Amino acid sequence: MHRFLEKGGNKLGSFNHYDAEPDTFSVCDLHPNGAGVTGEIQELILAGSKYIWVTRKKWDDGGDVGCDYVEFNIREKGVYMWELRGSGEYINGDLKE
């Protein structure tokens, strides 16, 4: 899976999921504008009587332009979402094994 964060027709960054064991993810800054990008993996959990989103992994690209990688095992029965932020913009979506 590869998703792109865009602003004004420019690709600012990407969030990537490489389905391997363990699951590997990357965030990449694609636009040299002095700002990096940040990725998050969140899981929906039951807390008392309500469901809440909990951040399980959060990382950045390490600065302006470039990529950084993390490993995180997505459980088959878990409910997850991903998020990519940068330059005041963000995108997110469902994350499936």
Rank of each mutant, 00 (worst) to 15 (best):
H2T: 15
R3G: 04
R3A: 10
G8P: 03
G9R: 04
G9S: 05
K11E: 14
K11W: 08
L12A: 02
L12W: 04
G13P: 01
G13H: 05
H17M: 09
Y18L: 12
Y18S: 12
D19A: 11
D19W: 01
A20M: 11
E21T: 13
E21H: 10
T24L: 06
T24H: 00
S26K: 08
S26T: 13
V27M: 07
D29P: 02
L30K: 12
H31R: 06
P32S: 11
G36W: 00
T38Q: 13
T38E: 15
E40I: 05
I41H: 01
E43N: 00
E43H: 00
L44W: 07
L46M: 14
A47F: 13
A47P: 00
G48C: 04
K50Y: 07
V54L: 12
T55I: 11
T55C: 05
W59G: 07
D60L: 07
D60M: 06
D61S: 15
G62T: 00
G63C: 04
D64N: 15
V65H: 07
G66L: 08
C67V: 05
C67P: 03
D68G: 02
Y69C: 10
Y69D: 14
Y69H: 11
V70T: 11
V70M: 12
V70P: 04
F72K: 04
N73Q: 15
I74F: 09
I74H: 07
R75E: 15
K77A: 11
K77I: 13
G78T: 06
V79K: 12
V79C: 08
V79G: 01
Y80N: 09
E83M: 11
E83S: 14
E83W: 01
L84E: 00
L84C: 00
R85Y: 07
G86P: 01
G86N: 00
S87E: 15
Y90E: 15
I91E: 10
I91K: 04
N92I: 05
L95G: 01
L95S: 02
K96F: 05
E97L: 10
E97Q: 11
